[in-house]
Amino acid sequence: MKGKFGISVLLALCLVMFVGPGSALADEDDEVAAAGVEGTARADKLDACVAPTAFMRRNHFELIEHQRDITVHEGIRKTDNSLAGCIDCHVRHDAAGQYVPVNAQGEFCSACHEYVGASLDCFTCHATKPTGTE
């Protein structure tokens, strides 16, 4: 049938209408940041994370997501696993001594994610660097 092509185009259009907005929601932190300087994060001067490094590498999101649920629903705030804590320790400075957002390109919370193609929406709400109000 000669209509097949046209129909696929139309279906594709509908799909765009449906899926488009979702992908548009991806991180929109449009701050242009200077590159962080190697060795300026607090973590760089320590030798252990809040859990063994191998564990963190694979399971850090479960850790924060668990933390997220117990903080919001049960009010538990005494912990090392807070997202604010991760950022506090892992954020780097630029050459001028200013914080560089942890989710800026190549920074700690973004380098691996870019590599594996994971996208997070956390930083549409959460601070990407310590703000001092905490």
Binding site: E28, A84, I87, D121, F123, T124, C125, H126, A127, T128, P130, T131, G132, T133, E134
Partner: peptide
């Protein structure tokens, strides 16, 4: 969209 994001008060 929320542009200024203090650590203590996340929102989006």
């Amino acid at each position: 969209s929320v542009r200024l994001k203090p650590t203590a008060t996340p929102r989006g």
